[in-house]
Design a protein around this nucleic acid. Structure first.
Length: 849
RNA sequence: GGAUGUUUAGCUCAGUUGGGAGAGCAUCGCCUUUACACGGCGGGGGUCAGGGGUUCGAGCCCCUUAACAUCCACCA
């Protein structure tokens, strides 16, 4: 027998290990149709947060649902080496030991990184288990695995040979703290307070000077020109002359280009080709020198005279001081401008001219735009993807790190010639590039490289690629989804997955992003310990619209747990009702009483609706329909009715009622199970007949029955509600006994018993024509009179209220029906329905008068 | 500057081809009725952001305004 209370801890205990042990998570039943997903591999940097919990729960619901539907579900487990993030963590740990990575050297450092990985992978495995994820661990991959490296190297080489990967000198975003290049999307921009410095630049051969404003004086050592707009009347005459750079006294040409905004600043702009992408473009156009003035620690270099070795900001202060002493500082304004920060270290990135490896994006992006068949859900995210693809720049893929896939390029020590090779080159005349690839370069191959590709005959690749579904949050579309799409189309000639389900971000109760600095993060494990994992899963995946952000609200998790407790207790009632000698009988729908027919019909409709919504990944709406059925139709209505049904009729019918109860319960359990697998399994195993696990079941199936509306049953439910209402309004105790007269041609068998149970009736009389003066309630083809010492005023008040209501309805209905357009243009059913309503209202009104 | 989203009950949010506005929490009243007090029953509370349009009919479709949010681009 079930405990009185749903206790998540007890329910969850042992189940995950047993599922795993039984091999339920392992795909490979080739008699079934495949359904495949790959987990977005979490970084091996730390604990999983609520965002992961949300993302993986969506996938797990899908996996469990598809499995019950009869698919061979393959949900591949895996993790990401997360180059920058992990290396930063490992280095931080080393720093606490007083070491730097250079003290250890590459080999030993990587040993430490692998140790770190092992430790955190272990954490992640534990958290996945807690969440109940049916991941296929037999196929687990890590982005640095040998097999993935093979794919990475192959992709690199192929793209290089096609000219789609090149090594070139361009302005990249440099993270001075982590000392590596970043791609454009690893830079986050924010509105920061800064200063706008106005300096005098003396004009050569004149007493005049030009005022130039800058936010970054330290880059003045890299200036190679000053630009003005040729249409700018103030400066037009100066073009071709020279000015003195107040930082280093060098003469710079004054040049004209329409790029310069006349309105902005002073209209005169210093040009620093090696430290600004726009200036770089100008340098290409006018063939200007490019002077790098910082080293890889963001310290000033030998081009900066006495400032050499200073930190960039220190240099800025000292230089401004110097210029002020020289009398060339005009003013300093406070401004707010957007500044790029490293996504990982949050330091201000330095745009710098460097030699790096790039993926030439245009051809790949164009192909992706033309050929992608990925179906984004919700569809609007297709636009997000397309827009990014249409405007994408070349992708800087080299990182000055050690933790990652090392670039398979080898340089000739004498000539510097480059060989890109899939196999290591051991020739002593060559040395390998020191850099590694951007983490996303390998993640981009995840859907196929994990399945054995580039071996196109690998069994998993043939069976599970393209993937059926990918689930991720919208903030990862650029980093990952789009890159999987273009790599997949280039290398496999197919889109990597059929559907791409996009969800939002989880925020705190006030709508703020969860972050370490705010200290508003929530550990899923704490939530699970308090409310159970099923409640957390239910909260995360219900009650929100697809693609929207959600807020973490603890009360909602509590509410979810309460709902599960409700299901638990309804199961307890059903199972206790079955008794000891219960034998399930086949339900013959046509021989049932209407009350049973009514609930089975509602169940049927629920199953169909829920299944069609689940098929569309509309988990929130599916759960909402199920909730309404469980709460209103089953628990609040039928479950109470069944108590009467179980006392009616012969023993045979009792067994039928029990079988109906069991049928409903089983279907509820199956439908709630993908959302709440632990309680689902627990209740399933408590059923009198069951398989070894609910994981071996099939999904809920609707009965093949005629789905009618059972008016008499709805009348009964309405009647009960009216009687309860009557008692409350008249301050009568709920169990106060009253006499009822039911006016009806006939009522279904047991009608009086059902009504009596809920109304505590003193007496129920069913007549065809009543002459009662009691309070009257009207239903379709039925009236109810409550015999009581009711005052005349109350009766009159009720009657007046009823009349007013009916008159209003009649007016509304007539308004519609007198509208010739409505009658002629609206669908016939709607018009007929309205006519029927009007007739009913009129009839009732006539009866009242 | 470009794009997307949001605006519905006190709060947090659902609302799938347009056809009588819903949930959770909160609130008020009654009830320890034998599945459940993590409960039951009943109630109150909304000109669905404003304006215009299409339609017989609009929370839903179109236009427009406003506020908030997010992303992309630019910023000497």
């Amino acid at each position: 027998m079930l405990e009185k209370r749903y206790d998540p801890k007890k329910v969850e205990e042992g189940k995950y290990d047993s599922w795993k042990k039984e091999g339920y998570f392992t795909a490979g039943d080739i008699s079934k149709k495949p359904f495949s997903m790959v987990i977005p591999p979490p970084n091996v940097t730390g604990k999983l947060h609520l965002g992961h919990a949300w993302n993986t729960t969506i996938q797990d619901i899908t996996a469990r649902y598809k499995k019950l539907q009869g698919y061979d579900v393959m949900w591949l487990a895996g993790m990401d080496h997360a180059g920058i993030a992990t290396q930063a963590k490992v280095e931080e740990k080393l720093r606490k030991e007083g070491l730097s990575r250079y003290d250890l050297g590459r080999e030993k450092f990587l040993d430490r990184a692998w140790q770190w990985k092992a430790e955190y992978a272990d954490n992640i495995h534990k958290q996945w288990a807690k969440m109940g994820l049916m991941l296929d661990y037999s196929r687990e991959r890590f982005t640095l695995d040998e097999s993935l490296n093979k794919a990475v190297v192959h992709v690199f080489k192929t793209l290089y040979d096609k000219g789609l990967i090149y090594r070139g000198e361009r302005i990249i975003n440099f993270d001075p703290e982590l000392k590596t290049a970043l791609s454009n999307i690893e830079v986050e921009y924010s509105e920061d307070k800064g200063k706008f410095y106005y300096f005098k630049y003396p004009i050569v051969g004149s007493n005049e000077f030009l005022v130039v404003a800058t936010t970054r004086p330290e880059t003045m050592f890299g200036d190679t020109a000053v630009f003005v707009n040729p249409k700018d009347k103030r400066y037009k005459h100066l073009i071709g002359k020279k000015v003195i750079n107040p930082a280093n006294e060098e003469a710079l040409p004054i040049m004209g280009d329409e790029y310069v905004d006349i309105e902005f600043g002073t209209g005169a702009m210093k040009c620093t080709p090696a430290h600004d992408p726009n200036d770089f473009a100008l340098s290409e156009k006018y063939n200007l020198k490019r002077i790098v003035c910082m080293d890889l620690n963001a310290k000033m270099n030998e081009n900066c005279g006495k400032y050499k070795g200073l930190d960039r900001y220190e240099c800025r202060d000292k230089l401004v001081e110097q210029i002020q002493k020289d009398g060339r500082l005009i003013k300093i304004e406070d401004i707010v401008h957007t500044v790029g920060h490293s996504e990982r270290s949050h330091t201000v990135v330095e745009p710098m001219l460097m030699k790096q490896w790039f993926v030439k994006m245009r051809p790949l992006a164009d192909q992706a735009l033309k050929k992608s068949t990925v179906n984004f859900v919700p569809a609007r995210f297709n636009n997000t993807f397309r827009q990014w693809m249409e405007n994408v720049d070349d992708w800087c893929i080299s990182r000055q790190l050690w933790w990652g896939h090392r670039i398979p390029a080898y340089y000739n020590k004498q000539t510097g010639d480059i060989i890109v090779s899939e196999k290591p080159i051991n020739d002593p005349n060559y040395y390998q590039d020191e850099d590694v690839l951007d983490t996303w370069f390998s993640s981009a191959l995840w859907p196929f490289a994990t399945l054995g590709w580039p071996n196109e005959n690998a069994p998993d690749y043939k069976r599970y690629f393209p993937n059926s579904l990918l689930v991720t949050a919208y903030d990862i579309i650029f980093f990952w989804v789009s890159r999987m799409i273009f790599d997949s189309l280039e290398f496999t000639k197919e889109s990597p997955f059929k559907d791409c389900l996009i969800h939002g971000l989880i925020r705190d109760s006030q709508g703020r992003k969860m972050s370490k600095s705010l200290g508003n993060g929530i550990d899923p494990i704490d939530v699970i310990d308090k409310y159970g994992v099923d409640a957390l899963r239910y909260f995360l995946t219900t009650g929100s619209a697809p693609g929207q952000d959600i807020r973490y609200i603890e009360e909602k998790v509590q509410a979810s747990a309460n709902y599960l407790n409700k299901i638990w207790n309804s199961a307890r009632y059903v199972l206790e009702s079955l008794g000891d000698n219960f034998k399930e009988v086949k339900i013959d729908f046509n021989s049932l009483n209407v009350v049973e027919k009514d609930i089975l019909t509602k169940l049927n409709k629920t199953i169909k609706t829920v299944e069609s919504l689940m098929d569309k990944y509309e988990y929130s709406m599916a759960s909402s329909y199920l909730y309404n059925f469980v709460y209103d139709d089953f628990c609040s209505s039928y479950l109470e009715m069944s108590k009467v049904s179980l006392q009616m009729g012969d023993d045979k019918y009792k067994e039928v009622v029990k079988s109906v109860l069991l049928h409903i319960l089983k279907n509820i359990i199956i439908m709630i199970y993908p959302f709440a697998p632990f309680i689902g399994e627990e209740l399933y195993l408590a059923l009198p007949e069951h398989k070894k696990s609910i994981m071996l079941e099939s999904y809920a199936k609707a009965l093949d029955i005629k789905e009618e509306e059972y008016e008499q049953v709805s009348n009964l439910y309405k009647m009960i509600q009216d009687i309860r209402n009557y008692k409350v309004n008249n301050k009568l105790a709920p169990n106060y006994k009253l006499k009822f007269i039911v006016e009806a041609k006939d009522v279904f068998p047991g009608f009086n018993d059902y009504l009596a149970r809920f109304s505590f009736a003193k007496e129920i009389v069913v007549v065809e024509k009543a002459s009662s003066k009691g309070m009257r309630y009207a239903y379709k083809d039925m009236n109810l009179y409550i015999e009581d010492d009711i005052s005349k005023e109350e009766l009159e008040a009720k009657k007046a209220k009823d009349i007013a209501f009916l008159k209003a309805e009649i007016a509304r209905s007539e308004g519609m029906l007198n509208n010739a357009n409505f009658v002629s243009k609206a669908p016939k059913e709607k018009v007929d329905l309205e006519r029927a309503k009007l007739a009913e209202f009129k009839k009732k009104l006539a009866e009242l008068n």
